[in-house]
Protein backbone atom coordinates (compact mmCIF):
# COMPACT_ATOMS: atom_id res chain seq x y z
CA UNK A 1 0.00 0.00 0.00
CA UNK A 2 1.37 3.40 -1.00
CA UNK A 3 0.35 6.96 -0.25
CA UNK A 4 -1.54 7.16 -3.54
CA UNK A 5 -3.73 4.16 -2.57
CA UNK A 6 -4.34 5.70 0.85
CA UNK A 7 -5.45 8.94 -0.85
CA UNK A 8 -7.83 7.03 -3.16
CA UNK A 9 -9.42 5.08 -0.31
CA UNK A 10 -9.76 8.27 1.72
CA UNK A 11 -11.59 9.93 -1.15
CA UNK A 12 -13.88 6.90 -1.63
CA UNK A 13 -14.72 7.02 2.09
CA UNK A 14 -15.08 10.82 1.99
CA UNK A 15 -12.43 11.23 4.69
CA UNK A 16 -9.46 13.51 4.99
CA UNK A 17 -6.40 12.45 6.98
CA UNK A 18 -4.10 15.01 8.61
CA UNK A 19 -0.76 15.21 6.84
CA UNK A 20 1.11 14.39 10.04
CA UNK A 21 -0.97 11.23 10.57
CA UNK A 22 -0.80 10.00 7.02
CA UNK A 23 2.35 7.85 7.43
CA UNK A 24 0.96 6.25 10.60
CA UNK A 25 -2.37 5.46 8.92
CA UNK A 26 -0.56 3.94 5.95
CA UNK A 27 1.48 1.75 8.28
CA UNK A 28 -1.58 0.73 10.33
CA UNK A 29 -3.50 -0.18 7.18
CA UNK A 30 -0.58 -2.26 5.94
CA UNK A 31 -0.48 -4.18 9.23
CA UNK A 32 -4.23 -4.82 9.20
CA UNK A 33 -4.29 -5.80 5.52
CA UNK A 34 -1.47 -8.22 6.25
CA UNK A 35 -3.55 -9.68 9.10
CA UNK A 36 -6.63 -10.23 6.95
CA UNK A 37 -4.44 -11.35 4.05
CA UNK A 38 -3.45 -14.36 6.19
CA UNK A 39 -6.84 -15.87 5.29
CA UNK A 40 -5.53 -16.61 1.81
CA UNK A 41 -3.83 -19.73 3.13
CA UNK A 42 -7.20 -21.32 3.99
CA UNK A 43 -8.77 -23.47 1.30
CA UNK A 44 -12.29 -22.20 0.60
CA UNK A 45 -12.87 -23.93 -2.72
CA UNK A 46 -16.62 -24.47 -3.19
CA UNK A 47 -17.44 -22.83 0.17
CA UNK A 48 -20.43 -20.51 -0.01
CA UNK A 49 -19.90 -17.17 1.78
CA UNK A 50 -21.87 -16.77 5.04
CA UNK A 51 -23.15 -13.19 4.99
CA UNK A 52 -25.43 -13.55 8.01
CA UNK A 53 -25.33 -16.14 10.80
CA UNK A 54 -29.09 -16.67 10.46
CA UNK A 55 -29.43 -17.53 6.77
CA UNK A 56 -33.16 -17.18 7.01
CA UNK A 57 -35.37 -15.24 4.68
CA UNK A 58 -36.26 -11.91 6.20
CA UNK A 59 -39.65 -12.07 7.86
CA UNK A 60 -42.40 -10.23 6.11
CA UNK A 61 -45.28 -8.38 7.61
CA UNK A 62 -48.39 -6.77 6.22
CA UNK A 63 -47.80 -3.43 4.59
CA UNK A 64 -50.08 -1.28 6.68
CA UNK A 65 -50.07 2.47 6.29
CA UNK A 66 -49.33 4.39 9.50
CA UNK A 67 -49.72 8.09 10.09
CA UNK A 68 -46.68 8.48 12.30
CA UNK A 69 -45.24 11.66 10.87
CA UNK A 70 -42.28 12.92 12.85
CA UNK A 71 -41.02 15.31 10.18
CA UNK A 72 -40.44 18.20 12.58
CA UNK A 73 -38.54 16.03 15.03
CA UNK A 74 -36.34 14.64 12.28
CA UNK A 75 -35.64 18.08 10.84
CA UNK A 76 -34.66 19.36 14.30
CA UNK A 77 -31.52 17.20 14.23
CA UNK A 78 -30.24 18.69 10.97
CA UNK A 79 -27.65 21.44 11.11
CA UNK A 80 -29.64 23.37 8.51
CA UNK A 81 -33.25 22.93 7.46
CA UNK A 82 -36.38 24.88 6.60
CA UNK A 83 -39.87 23.71 7.53
CA UNK A 84 -39.88 20.98 4.89
CA UNK A 85 -36.35 20.09 3.84
CA UNK A 86 -32.76 19.49 4.86
CA UNK A 87 -30.60 22.30 3.47
CA UNK A 88 -27.23 21.71 1.78
CA UNK A 89 -24.87 23.89 -0.29
CA UNK A 90 -26.18 24.66 -3.77
CA UNK A 91 -25.72 21.64 -6.07
CA UNK A 92 -27.14 22.96 -9.36
CA UNK A 93 -26.15 26.38 -10.67
Amino acid sequence: MDQETVRTICYLARLEIDQNKSQKIQKDLEIIIELIGSLQSIDTTNVEPLFSPLEMTALKHEDVEKSDNKKEKFLENAAASNEDYFLVPRVVE
Binding site: I33, L39, T44, V47, P49
Partner: peptide
Protein backbone atom coordinates in the same frame (compact mmCIF):
# COMPACT_ATOMS: atom_id res chain seq x y z
CA UNK B 1 -13.09 -11.33 -3.60
CA UNK B 2 -9.68 -11.46 -1.92
CA UNK B 3 -10.72 -9.87 1.37
CA UNK B 4 -14.46 -9.57 1.94
CA UNK B 5 -15.78 -12.66 0.12
CA UNK B 6 -12.85 -14.73 1.36
CA UNK B 7 -13.61 -13.75 4.95
CA UNK B 8 -17.29 -14.65 4.56
CA UNK B 9 -16.25 -18.08 3.23
CA UNK B 10 -13.94 -18.65 6.20
CA UNK B 11 -16.80 -17.49 8.42
CA UNK B 12 -18.88 -20.40 7.13
CA UNK B 13 -16.04 -22.81 7.92
CA UNK B 14 -15.92 -21.42 11.48
CA UNK B 15 -19.69 -21.79 11.85
Amino acid sequence: DAYYKKAQQVRRLIK
